[in-house]
Design a protein around this nucleic acid. Structure first.
Lengths: 337, 337
DNA sequence: TTGTAAGCGTTATCAT
DNA sequence: ATGATAACGCTTACAA
């Protein structure tokens, strides 16, 4: 260590660096050391420290592509609480497509090799891959899974996004607005899984709770994967003809399609049909009429994930799984008549 | 090193790890080593390696708040090219507000302490703080500044977003659509700086290039900082009354405000007034009519920043500054009549 | 109150 | 072709 140029020992310097916990360094020595540091423009090497202490103050975050804005918010939320506790984030983005599972596995191994103190793994709607988690299990590393739906019991913290509650709140809102024939536009039936299933179940629970009958003719689970906006445009007329007085959509894109088509058909929203979306993406503020939507509070989910990981890191037993809360944002597309 | 349980020396193991560049290891020994590794579930410690080689394969990226979607795209672009070269990203987000400069400086120091091989610093529209860059200069670390406008010569790579070209392309497009009285809605006059000045200059250059007169009554540089959407709503009527046949807006939010107000006033877009925004945010696809806007290609800027840093890292002299390209996305708000 | 010395897991140099 | 040994920059008993 260079700073011993101050004429003192390594130990003293190290103590000063770490705030002299036991008050063992004389003020004179301390001053000499600090002066020497300033002169030499000394910067401690955190790598060496990490190596010795076996703590890197680093959390790896793995996402399947930061692209969708989706992930970003979660990362942002997590980052904020982690930064508060002096942790930093090492990014590990996973490619999409066929190599996904392998890429995820490799990435986890890489981050572990870099000795991260813990991991947060954010998964999307794609089918889950237990296999990719093996290295994590082997290493016994603290990890939090966000939005990961699995049958198996896993030794990790879990945070779920409040999709079921979203479905419920949407129905509750529409019911209180006097709507009784509430349609649902969702994901392909055979692909219904993970969070899409949660939303649908929220819808069903909502109906039941308010004693509304489940009407098959008001539910659309498209046969094939399709662009969501186009799906909305295609189905708007059908929804109307089925006699719905409101429609709740799996996501905002579908709702935008509905709104656009209703505009074209000169249908009054919300008078003839109330529309509620899901995710509360920014565009909802600017469409005509502005779109009521359920905000999934992803930043807050990210913060929950971060906090969960921090408690795991502190050795406590995690209260998991955690569920994110959601918030209904009422705009013109569903306001009272 | 644990794997010497294979009955061989550290050196041999290290060679095997690094692919035995000189072919000095016998197949028999190699096999023994690999077996032992598998048995012990051995994972190399990249921290130790970094410490020895003085290379961390890590790039620090500092942004002033990942919030705005803005930064995300740049980070994403950079990440892709860096990942390709086996670099990973360590995030360092800087708080907004009064502590910004100090926070930025601290963050840079922190990342340097962690021995990152290089840095990418993405700044927003806030006033620049040369001071925060001091540690970088001292350390002589390779760094790329994105969207950083400064008078001084700085020993860093630079990437600028193509704002000036954006202004020009918008005017070019409108001119070719037959518009001759093109208004501009921009940033407060006294705060015009950095990229807002670039856009404005692009507008001016466009006018000049197509021999359109600069008309003061067609330019709005609001007195005070104001919500952009509200600004659009407020000024729509004025723009119309000033006799403009087209309007180019500093960003899409202003344009949305214009569109909403024109809708309310029953003004035909683009027949009576063509509207062009800037940034091409997602919402532009869904408003009525859909919004023509200039896409700033931020992913590509991020990629450029990543590549620039990589060439700096390889010791070559960087061709800097680089300018991002832009792309005009034509939608209904400005289509030919 | 201060100094000595060992050790973290690698890579690199030099003998063998 | 393989092995012993130093070194990277730090923390931390323990000794002085």
């Amino acid at each position: 260590m260079v700073a011993e140029r101050a004429g003192v020992s390594l130990t003293a310097v190290s103590f000063v660096l770490n705030g002299d916990p036991q008050g063992k360094i004389s003020d004179e020595t301390k001053r000499r050391i600090l002066d020497a540091m300033a002169e030499l423009n000394y910067k401690p090497n955190l790598l060496a420290r990490s190596m010795r202490t076996r703590k890197t103050q680093t959390i790896g975050i793995i996402t399947t592509g930061i692209a969708s804005g989706w992930f970003t918010k979660i990362v942002l939320g997590a980052e904020e609480v982690l930064q508060e506790m002096k942790y930093q984030i090492l990014l590990g983005s996973v490619s999409q497509g066929s190599t996904r599972v392998k890429s995820m596995k490799t990435n986890i191994e890489l981050l572990l090799s870099r000795q991260v103190d813990g991991l947060i793994i954010i998964t999307g709607s794609e089918p889950q891959a237990e296999e990719a988690l093996e290295p994590l299990v082997d290493a016994g590393a603290p990890a939090v899974l966000v939005n990961y739906y699995s049958e198996r019991e896993l030794p990790f913290g879990r945070v779920y996004i409040g999709y079921k509650e979203a479905g419920f709140k949407a129905i509750e809102h529409l019911y209180k607005q006097g709507r009784r024939r509430i349609a649902y536009l969702g994901a392909p039936k055979e692909k219904i899984s993970g969070f899409t299933r949660e939303i649908y179940e929220g819808y069903l629970e909502g109906l039941k709770h308010f004693s509304l009958p489940f009407l098959e003719e008001l539910v659309w689970l498209p046969k094939t994967e399709i662009d969501h906006y186009q799906m909305g445009r295609k189905l708007a007329q059908e929804v109307l003809e089925a006699g719905a007085d409101a429609v709740y959509c799996l996501n905002d894109y579908i709702a935008f399609g509905i709104l656009a088509e209703l505009n074209r058909l000169n249908i009054q929203v919300p008078r003839q049909l109330a529309v509620v979306g899901n995710d509360n993406i920014e565009a909802g503020k600017f469409v005509e009429p502005s779109l009521t939507s359920v905000d999934m509070m992803l930043e807050s989910c990210g913060a929950k994930a971060g906090e969960l990981l921090l408690t795991m890191l502190s050795g406590e037993k995690p209260a998991s799984p955690l569920y994110g809360s959601v918030e209904l944002i009422v705009r013109d597309s569903s306001r009272a008549l």
